[in-house]
Design a protein around this nucleic acid. Sequence first.
DNA 1: GTATGTGCAAATGATTTGCGTGCTT
DNA 2: AAGCACGCAAATCATTTGCACATAC
Lengths: 146, 146
Amino acid sequence: MSTRIEQLCQDKGLKMTEQRRIIARVLSEATDHPDVEQVFRRAATLDPRISIATVYRTIRLFEEANIVEKHDFGDGRSRYEESGGRSHHHHLINLRTGEVIEFENDELELLKRKIAAQLGFELAGERLELYGVPLAEAAKKKDNGS
Amino acid sequence: MSTRIEQLCQDKGLKMTEQRRIIARVLSEATDHPDVEQVFRRAATLDPRISIATVYRTIRLFEEANIVEKHDFGDGRSRYEESGGRSHHHHLINLRTGEVIEFENDELELLKRKIAAQLGFELAGERLELYGVPLAEAAKKKDNGS
DNA sequence: GTATGTGCAAATGATTTGCGTGCTT
DNA sequence: AAGCACGCAAATCATTTGCACATAC
């Protein structure tokens, strides 16, 4: 009983192998949004007897089990993060630096559902990223609400 | 001077070849969100002396010139549509059927900008798709606003 | 013990690119 | 005429998969 992910795996009756444990740990500890290659490298550091194929397979497994979320930030590869690691949020990508900023917004959550409902759907998933340029490289002292 | 796209190409000083004209036309006339393969097939119908490599090159060219927008609806390939063809809109994908429904929502537009501004950014781009399941296969008679 | 997972390397699928030739300006 | 564009086929890149072996339950 270490990672929340390990728990979920057992709950779902998945075999808990050493490599899955490692990958679960890497994903749990990540504060960024690593791609498969990065997960692989971090995992290989903890245990070299791991192959990138397994990382792909495991991440896909976790994804299908809703244990991790897949993101696409525009570069070629897919990025991942533990679902529910923090509360529901979205990402804003700084186009100058590539930095990924997380945000959450209740109004937005309501609005998305409302829009889906108006179209006759129940919201089952979404993809939402904002891309922005700094308002003024120096004018960022307004986080308090100005 | 036929398509708006052709205009833009000339304005940008791009050579206007027959294949570019064809591809421009296909994209202009599309009411769906074709992938490269589909654009290729439609273009090849109009003029068989066109290769998929050219379609890739041309679509990428158009994309970089902000003439078309790229979308990713979850299946492997990228989908395209003419920018500004209609007003600014987003997409809701019906998870049951794969159908793509376009919608626009002013409240959402304002909210996105507001969120970006609060984080210290000017909104420069975004990616937003909703995925939904029909509320009830039959309860879709509510398009009028109920 | 048996089903399932893993490593490796080859396969795949979308997209890109080098090269020699053709067409637009 | 000169440069950019095209077609073709080979190359890339991320991701998937077949197969023989290893491991969790």
